[in-house]
Design a protein around this nucleic acid. Structure first.
Lengths: 183, 183
DNA sequence: ACAGATCATCTGTCGACCAGAACATCTGTC
DNA sequence: GACAGATGTTCTGGTCGACAGATGATCTGT
């Protein structure tokens, strides 16, 4: 039987490139790098990078309730609670009772929060540019533009109507997956 | 002293767009979406999406030792241990003693692993395309190309020589950050 | 007024991740 | 060849964040 040679001719071209062409890998690398830098940069800010996003989202107050805020940022609603706790304790945002619905709280930024947000935004922009360093200035803006487009579109139709259909096709892959046993 | 007005004329234009223009937000949205889809799709595969990446990286065996593998994929080396445990138990990869260095293990894919990898790669490509759906075909490839370029470059010079310099500038932001108290 | 749904919060539990120790092995020097 | 220090892998313990479910307050419909 023909055993697969470790360095076959054209197979290698396929397999070697698998990782490099994988969207997930590239995304992961970039995302981790982003987190590393911003975590260091926003070490003093309560929620880290996500605290910043909450602040930013609260400033452009289109998303009133904190549930809307949560799913806009992709965090659990229970997490949003203590995330806001920390930000409020730092005096950057305020929970205000919604006049229309007394269950809900509207999240607004304090003056201090707004001011800090402006400063941090500037710094972050700088860091982002650093991250995209390997690209030409033209490509950088192009990349940003494309990424924003994808993100905003996904954000709207995230429940991915036919994602399930895609998944279903894979059901025919029989793998005896088994988690490692506990002692 | 001029206090910052909460909703000044042109300031608002800035703040509303803060989130939309934030690279981190867009990255997060896309990444989470990617994880959600691939997690569902690779539910049977031991390590999930990362298991796939390990498999892919092991197939293009340029990275022999599992430490190299680990830092190529951005996971802790202790995590790589049981990640490989699971994959090996599923019969997809094999730990083979490195002939040159008996401490190290070379990770190679079994025939079954190689075969499965090919199949999964195809499916994932499909899912990725679905994820990039909102883009035209032309923009899709452009986006991929740019992302790959950024990722590969970052991967090389990740320690970010002047990242520290960027961080240092922020030291002047006095924030009384305080974690929530335990009862 | 009442039943069911919804928002925010609290609690408990579970799994992942990371630092550090331990073991086996390599590399250099003498 | 023998030793000291460095390196690859695995194991262990502690810590932290995330998600499920229950709870209290409030809204909406009938």
């Amino acid at each position: 039987m023909p055993k697969v040679t470790p360095a076959a001719g054209d197979d290698e071209a396929d397999l070697c490139g698998v990782l490099d062409a994988d969207l997930g890998w590239a995304l992961g690398v970039l995302f981790r790098s982003y987190l590393k830098i911003t975590n260091a940069m926003l070490a003093d800010l309560p929620g880290g990078p996500r605290g910043y996003q909450v602040l930013a989202s609260a400033a452009g107050d289109r998303a009133g309730t904190q549930l809307a805020l949560a799913q806009q940022l992709g965090v659990d609603r229970t997490v949003m609670t203590y995330l806001l706790d920390d930000l409020e304790r730092a005096g950057l945002v305020e929970r205000r009772p919604d006049p229309a619905d007394r269950r809900a709280r509207r999240v607004v930024t304090t003056d201090r929060g707004t001011e800090l947000l402006a400063r941090l935004t500037q710094r972050l922009r700088q860091a982002e540019e650093h991250l995209l360093g390997p690209l030409e200035a033209t490509d950088r803006t192009a990349f940003r533009e494309l990424l924003q487009r994808v993100a905003t579109q996904i954000d709207c139709l995230d429940p991915a109507p036919d994602a399930c259909a895609v998944v279903e096709e894979v059901r025919d892959a029989p793998i005896p997956a088994r988690r490692r046993v506990r002692t």
